[in-house]
């Protein structure tokens, strides 16, 4: 049986914050490998979150470990 990973070990989408328990899209942003739940969330991150919040757009919970 595969090891069960509790939700605190799983990443959250870098834009919306949703827990991404399987799948997701990994991209480099702000010097880190981040996980996103959809192409649309990457677009919102690039066009809204980063221009508005700068470095603060980055959430620890979204960095792929």
């Amino acid at each position: 049986m595969p090891v069960y990973r509790e939700v605190n070990e799983l990443p959250h989408c870098g834009s919306c914050g949703k827990l991404v328990s399987v799948g997701g899209i990994r991209v480099e942003r702000l010097g880190h490998p981040l996980l996103f739940c959809s192409e649309r969330c990457i677009e919102v991150f690039d066009s809204y979150k980063v221009p508005k919040y700068g470095e603060a757009a980055l959430w620890e919970e979204s960095i792929v470990r």
Partner: peptide, 16 residues
């Protein structure tokens, strides 16, 4: 519609 809810906030609770 896109939603942004920071993890660990009042709007997106983190475990536990």
């Amino acid at each position: 519609i896109s939603v942004i809810a920071p993890p660990g906030s009042f709007m997106n609770v983190s475990y536990p």
